[in-house]
Design a protein around this nucleic acid. Structure first.
Length: 492
DNA sequence: TTTTGAGTTGTTCGA
DNA sequence: GTCGAACAACTCAAA
């Protein structure tokens, strides 16, 4: 086809909200004169996994940033809402498009929807339709065990990845970027009603982005530029002590790139390319341990691809009969951070205030819910899905299954985290607890993770009346641990 | 086909 | 306080 003024490509962005390292966009810009970048809000198209409230609050700002980046290049982001196929069809007509490109997603419901859309669009004469890989280092079908089966254990997969090292080559920013003339109709960002205020709710997301940010955590900056800024800060600082510091929730020693990754403002291939520029496995131990975490993300996505029931059903079938309890009021106490276990409550309150929780604490609160309270991991997974700005179907499901012990790894049955011991080990001065549970701020550090062990005198001096200022523990840690081990015996 | 080695992130107890 | 052993059995992956 000759390149005429009407030679228009549509780039359908979803969870790849960036201009750099974006294969669909790069292809469109190199092959077509006019490029229309569209985002379609299609809740129904995601099955019962449309983004949660916290994710939507992030999405609002990410789309805002993307539009600003495009406008700087004399283009713009076109916004639509509704059924993806219907909207694409309309947009194709609106701008006489000759091509539609997008980057692949791997969530079960989305895969099904996208396959149908690809089929329908491919039947339109003269329309090119192509999908690309923008998010994964390895496609799920590109790596397997010697038997040709998908990996169900991380370490052998990581060994395979190291032995067959793949150096990603992310696409450069299209230069010059094609200006958008005769822009098709677009909704305004406010019309998508992604922020709570626009749905008539209180502005509960303020704490995510402006007010009450609590040290040592800094402001989120959604969008591609924010992602690279975060990477620079991490690369200049915490990365060099990553192995030890990543476990200390009070020190912000993790990359905090997860929401940027979840929305594709930056991608694993880009990160690997930045961190391993010589095209070899990292020689540096710190970089190695961080890249290994990125490989875990790959592992999770591969698992979701090969086992699409991962978000709902335990990977190990014997757990179908596990005697989970049903207790809505206990679930609610956990959700609100009122369990009476300081580090658990600190984590749940951090989640509520910031839309994010430190990784180590995620394990602790998940272990507490599934082992000490014996509540189903699916209930925790759903809460995280709604409250995390980095909610990611594969990582969230995989992580919860791992903690519950029904997932893909050799979790010994006896691994039940003790939140007091863990608090003492990873938050020795209690800074993290003090930060998110201010009622305990004046308690000396030897009691901060177990206020019930402090004398009445000590509590009084710290200004704490148990049950009024801070709840009594909702379960006995020792007894609930034993109950969990007994429950495990039942399905052995 | 069979065998062998190994498996992210832990806790508790007793010396 | 520190340290090593016990805590089950199973599944996965590779030889």
């Amino acid at each position: 086809m000759s390149a005429t003024q009407r030679d228009t490509a549509i780039v359908w962005l979803r969870r790849d909200l960036r201009l750099r390292g974006n294969p669909a966009l790069a292809h469109a810009c190199s092959q077509h004169q006019r490029v229309v970048v569209v985002f379609i809000l299609d809740a129904a198209g995601e099955g019962d996994r449309s983004p949660g409230a916290a994710s939507l609050a992030w999405l609002h700002r990410s789309l805002q940033a993307l539009d600003a980046d495009l406008r700087q290049r004399h283009s713009a982001l076109i916004l639509r809402r509704g059924d993806s196929h219907a909207q694409l069809q309309r947009l194709i007509d609106d701008c006489q498009a000759t091509a539609v490109y997008w980057n692949r997603r791997y969530e079960p419901a989305v895969r099904e929807r996208d396959a149908a859309i690809k089929q329908w669009l491919s039947d339109i004469p003269g329309l090119q339709v192509q999908s690309f890989n923008a998010s994964l280092w390895w496609e799920p079908w590109e790596i397997s065990t010697g038997q040709g089966k998908p990996y169900r254990v991380f370490t052998p997969m990581w060994k395979n990845m190291l032995e067959n090292w793949r150096a990603p080559r992310p696409e450069a920013l299209p230069q010059p970027f094609p200006a958008l003339t005769d822009a098709p109709a677009s909704l305004t960002l406010d019309e998508l009603a992604l922020r709570p205020q626009q749905r008539g709710e209180p502005a509960w997301d303020d704490g995510f982005f402006h007010a009450r940010q609590t040290a040592p955590y800094t402001l989120w900056q959604p969008g591609e530029q924010g992602a690279w800024q975060r990477l620079r800060e991490f690369g200049d600082g915490a990365l060099h002590d990553y192995k030890a510091r990543r476990d200390v929730p009070a020190s912000a020693g993790t990359s905090m790139l997860s929401p940027h990754l979840a929305w594709g403002e930056i991608s694993t291939p880009q990160l690997v390319s930045e961190l391993c520029p010589d095209g070899q496995p990292p020689a540096d131990a710190m970089i190695n341990s961080f890249v290994r975490e990125l490989a875990w993300r790959e592992f999770s996505w591969h698992l979701l691809y090969h086992f699409p029931h991962l978000p709902e059903q335990p990977l190990q079938p014997k757990f179908t009969d596990f005697p989970w309890r049903e207790d809505d009021s206990a679930l609610q106490r956990w959700q609100r951070g009122e369990t009476g276990i300081p580090i658990v409550d600190a984590g749940m309150r951090q989640l509520w205030q910031h839309g994010w929780m430190h990784n180590r604490v995620r394990m602790l609160v998940a272990s507490f819910l599934t082992k000490n309270l014996l509540l189903p991991w699916q209930a925790g997974e759903r809460w995280f899905w709604d409250t995390l700005v980095d909610a990611d179907l594969a990582n969230n499901s995989q992580g919860w299954q791992w903690t519950a012990g029904c997932g893909a790894d050799a979790a010994p049955y006896f691994r039940v985290f003790n939140p007091v011991t863990q608090g003492q080990r990873f938050d020795p001065d209690g800074d993290y607890v003090r930060c998110f549970v201010p009622a305990l701020a004046r308690l000396p550090k030897q009691y901060i993770h177990a206020p019930w062990s402090a004398s009445a005198d000590t509590l009084r001096q710290a200004g704490i009346e148990p049950g009024r200022d801070y709840p009594m523990p909702m379960v006995d840690l020792q007894r609930s641990r034993e109950r969990a081990l007994q429950a495990w015996q039942q399905i052995r």
